[in-house]
Amino acid sequence: MLEKILTTLGLVLIGGVGGTIAHWLQTPLPFMLGSLVSTALIATLFGRVIPEGYVFPQKFRLVFLAVIGVMIGAQVSPDLIEMLPAMLVSFSAIVLFVGLAHSGNYLIFRHIGGYDRPTAFYSATPGGLLESITMGEAAGADIATLTMQQFLRIILVITLVPIGLSFWMGAPVGSAGGMTLTHANPSDFSHLHEVVLTALVGLLLGKPLRLPARHLTGPLFAAALVAASGLAVLDLPNWMISVCQVVIGASLGMRLGGLRGHAVLRGAGLGLLSVGLMLGVGLAFSLTLEHVTGQPLDVLMVSFAPGGVTEMALIALSLNANPALVTAHHIWRIIVTVIELALFGRYVQRRTL
């Protein structure tokens, strides 16, 4: 027992170092990605130092997963709700985008990549990284491959979109342009009890409601209702959110230990096809909506790009656009994806039994 605890703490510490280095290098999703890469390298290159039969403790991981769920749901603020009437057309387009992107990606991973049905289905989602990984694991997907493809989606979108827009505008955009959404007061714990209470309510309601990946989606939907109604302020210091990402990244990195160079290269090729398809579909919607909504093409493109919510909001700031508008589209994309997974995920799981 002690050996398992020490191993877990050691992996989290290694993940924290990797996350800090990634943060210094200004990579996308630095603390989660840096933690994932560093622990995956340990599992792959120095697997003998890890006790035989060791598995990252799931109950420990789920605590931090619930907090992340709350912070995702907290993005649905009253301000965003007030903006809904003006975004009905683009929000409807997001629903179509999710369906088209997911279907096209599934064909890529299933028929070109040769992945099994659950792995292809959950790798193909155009959003909801943690939700897809959590639900995919329950459905019997190859968790290492699924995790790799979901992170490649985020990395490729977050890398390609800012680079493309930077060339177009002639100046860096996003975090590369110095934009930040960092919490102003790292010692402010005044809303910690509200976050914990919301997470507990979400966890308690998730089981009777039979929510998929309830440890994440329960707190997520509970936080969305609380934040949208203005009942409480769900906010935490940025460093605490980073710690949650480090722990989750470390748990995922341990599952990537079995991947080798050929699998990674193949996944990268499939990821480029998938991201190319999604950006193409997003561009088509953006060109159409530009004339309907009056929003600039670049802002619409950022709203449809299936990348991380934070980085897309930073890019919006770089474009002098309303980050709340862009964030609203990405939160809606994630919600639609989670609902779609809940509706069709069980069908995919039944087809594999």
Rank of each mutant, 00 (worst) to 15 (best):
V95R: 02
F64E: 12
A224Q: 05
L300S: 11
A324C: 00
R153M: 04
L84T: 00
L181S: 05
F285A: 06
L277N: 06
K59T: 11
T145V: 14
G276H: 11
V17I: 15
A101Y: 06
S175F: 08
F151N: 12
G99P: 08
P306E: 12
K207R: 10
H191A: 14
A141M: 00
T44Y: 09
M169D: 03
L289M: 07
P30K: 02
I81S: 00
N320L: 11
T288G: 00
I5V: 15
A124F: 04
S175Q: 10
E3A: 14
G18F: 06
S132A: 10
A316Y: 10
T352S: 15
L25G: 11
L160P: 07
V49Q: 12
A232Q: 09
T147Y: 00
A342V: 04
L259H: 09
M148C: 00
I42M: 13
S38G: 13
A284I: 11
I5T: 14
A74I: 13
A120T: 09
L317Y: 06
A213R: 05
R117H: 13
L45P: 06
I335S: 04
M83S: 05
E290L: 08
L11C: 12
G69F: 06
L25Q: 13
V246L: 10
H102S: 13
I81L: 12
L204Y: 08
G230S: 08
G280L: 01
R48L: 05
F97Y: 14
L192H: 07
